Computed example of a mutant assay.
Amino acid sequence: MGLEAPGVEMSLPRVAILDDYQGLALTLADWSGLDGRAEIVVFRDNLGPLDAAVEALAGFDMVCLMRERQAVSRALIERLPRLKCIVTTGVWNAAIDLEAASQRGIDVFGTSNGRGQRATAELTWGLILALARKIPAQDVGMRAGAWAGAPGRMLEGAVLGLVGFGTVAAMVAGYAHAFGMKVCATSRSRMARELPSHVKLMEPDRLFEAADVLSLHVRLTAETRGLIGPRQLRRMKRDALLVNTARGPLIDQAALIAALQSGEIGGAALDVFDQEPLPPGDPLREVGSNLILSPHMGYVTRETMADFHRQTRDVVAAWLNAGDPSSLAPRLA
């Protein structure tokens, strides 16, 4: 509910901006309006394990999150007695224990998704093209002095399989249609008549068997964790390509590595991982050129990040004024 009314003697409230990997928070948004009203501290790197996060955040009244880069668990909340408000980018954040926050009386607000969904769809399509035409491998070969690398494949006439059909998947389906692909999807919440005319609804097992490119677009839940495992990978074509810009644990990582190394599938591109940032020694970093890795850049564009940081600033300013930021951003707790 904001801080004490003006006139009450107190130190400046402290606001932590977390996981600003590219150093964009204070350049894409003008925070000067909070000069003299709050101390703004930016953390460029992920805070790491629980004890390290507690030590870093113990003195803060507000914490601003960039999507789900930092988990805010019950254990963390219970060890931050000064924390009064959390602002997350996006309309939901599965990394926040909302029940624990509510029980503590901590306000939680989320910004809009901005242009993040369109940005994610664009990156998904970029990864599909990079896999199909082996663009990263061609670049590496050229820099090593080679000229003609292994040929890629065309997308026209190929089958794109979409696991889930929400906003991002619908955008990707539009790109695929423009490229002349056949688009199929599996969805638990949509009927065939609700899909665009260029998208065919299909049962999951049939989708895995039919897809030349399989792209994941479902939320991570207890039910979807490990959705793509050894059984599903065995059903896929030997030259099929798998793309994940949704959530890392949707795929059994060990099973994927085995499938890529044995040639059970043709290739994969991952923008999301079980642990983020991906540890330097993670086995995924050792897989060959049939795996493309991207550091969770789906929503990360200049435009989207500007939207996120400006909306976060506006919510922080409203809360510091002891106002109700819910007119600017939805209240999550």
Results as ranks from 00 to 15, higher is better:
residue 307 D to Q: 03
residue 294 S to D: 13
residue 269 A to V: 09
residue 297 M to D: 01
residue 309 H to T: 14
residue 308 F to Q: 09
residue 284 L to P: 02
residue 294 S to R: 04
residue 288 G to I: 08
residue 274 D to E: 15
residue 307 D to S: 06
residue 276 E to G: 04
residue 271 D to G: 03
residue 265 I to K: 00
residue 304 T to G: 06
residue 292 I to E: 01
residue 298 G to N: 03
residue 275 Q to S: 14
residue 300 V to D: 00
residue 293 L to A: 09
residue 304 T to H: 00
residue 307 D to I: 02
residue 271 D to F: 05
residue 270 L to C: 06
residue 295 P to F: 06
residue 298 G to Y: 01
residue 269 A to Q: 10
residue 292 I to S: 05
residue 299 Y to P: 00
residue 285 R to D: 02
residue 306 A to L: 02
residue 306 A to C: 09
residue 280 P to I: 02
residue 299 Y to W: 14
residue 274 D to L: 02
residue 274 D to P: 01
residue 267 G to W: 03
residue 302 R to G: 14
residue 279 P to C: 08
residue 301 T to H: 11
residue 280 P to S: 14
residue 277 P to W: 04
residue 284 L to I: 04
residue 302 R to I: 10
residue 265 I to C: 08
residue 295 P to V: 10
residue 290 N to R: 13
residue 278 L to K: 08
residue 276 E to I: 07
residue 293 L to C: 11
residue 277 P to G: 12
residue 265 I to W: 00
residue 283 P to N: 13
residue 297 M to W: 07
residue 296 H to F: 08
residue 286 E to F: 09
residue 302 R to Y: 11
residue 274 D to R: 01
residue 293 L to R: 07
residue 285 R to K: 14
residue 269 A to I: 08
residue 281 G to D: 15
residue 301 T to D: 13
residue 268 A to Q: 00
residue 286 E to K: 15
residue 279 P to L: 06
residue 297 M to K: 12
residue 283 P to Q: 11
residue 295 P to H: 05
residue 301 T to A: 11
residue 282 D to I: 06
residue 283 P to A: 12
residue 309 H to S: 05
residue 302 R to H: 13
residue 287 V to R: 02
residue 288 G to C: 04
residue 295 P to A: 13
residue 301 T to I: 10
residue 272 V to M: 08
residue 265 I to H: 05
residue 274 D to C: 03
residue 273 F to K: 00
